[in-house]
Simulated assay, not measured.
Amino acid sequence: MSLDNVVSDIRDEAHARAEEIRKEGERRAEEIIEAAETDAEELLDAREEKVERQIEQEREQALSSAKLEAKQERLEARRDVLQDVRARVEEELRTLPEGKREELTRTLLEEAAAEFDGGESVAVYGRADDADLLEDLVAEHDGVEYGGEHDCLGGVVVDSDDSRVRVNNTFDSVLDDVWEDNLKDVSGILFDQ
């Protein structure tokens, strides 16, 4: 075999080996690209899933916040309506007809006076506009005198220095008790609960 043949054989083997290395490199490159594409798709899917979860969570939070805000606004509106109703009741009490005012004040004074012993000196206080009425009513009771003004819608506050007892039978105190006892029913009527 001649030297040219040997060189030619070596060259052919080198070309064949180079072709094998090139094909192996291409195959390996395709595997790497394919793995990278798969990893990229998985990463994209994971990110999309994470974003969708975050969007759903933010939507739920926004919905929950909106529901809470609506509930608070509803409660505020109800409170405003109840305050308006209470203000109307107070105005009705403030402007009771004279006969009805006298009847209620007489009853409240008699109930309060019953809390004291007959020998005690008792003072009766009431609304400034009711001074004449109160003076007439206390004249009907022994040991009871008109003591002056008390800031209220009507009714009486009766007290005695002898026993240090004070009875608040004002329209305000009666309204407070009735309001507290019936607030749930009033709310039910007003708001169809």
Rank of each mutant, 00 (worst) to 15 (best):
D4E: 13
S8E: 13
S8Q: 15
D9T: 14
R11K: 12
R17P: 02
R17L: 14
A18W: 14
E20L: 09
I21W: 02
R22K: 12
K23F: 00
K23V: 08
E26D: 05
A29M: 08
E30M: 11
E31T: 12
E31N: 13
E31V: 14
E31G: 05
I33Y: 04
E34A: 14
A35F: 03
A36C: 04
E37G: 07
A40R: 08
A40P: 00
E41K: 15
E42W: 06
L44A: 14
D45R: 13
D45G: 13
D45L: 08
A46W: 03
E48Y: 09
E49P: 00
E49G: 06
E49T: 12
I55W: 04
R59C: 03
Q61C: 06
A62C: 02
A62R: 07
K67F: 06
E69L: 08
A70V: 06
Q72A: 09
E73C: 05
R74N: 11
E76P: 01
D80K: 12
V81L: 10
R86T: 10
E91W: 10
L96S: 01
P97G: 15
G99C: 04
E103F: 07
T105W: 00
T105P: 01
T107Y: 03
E111N: 10
E115Y: 02
G118Y: 06
E120L: 05
S121V: 09
A123R: 11
A123M: 06
A128I: 11
L133R: 01
E135D: 03
V138E: 01
H141N: 10
D142M: 07
D142S: 15
V144M: 09
E145A: 10
G154E: 02
G155E: 03
S160D: 01
D162C: 04
S163Q: 01
V165N: 02
V165K: 07
V167G: 00
V167T: 02
N168W: 05
N168M: 04
T170D: 01
D176V: 06
D176F: 13
D177Q: 11
W179R: 05
W179G: 01
E180P: 00
E180R: 15
L183W: 05
V186Y: 00
V186C: 03
L190D: 00
L190T: 05
F191L: 10
F191T: 13
D192I: 09
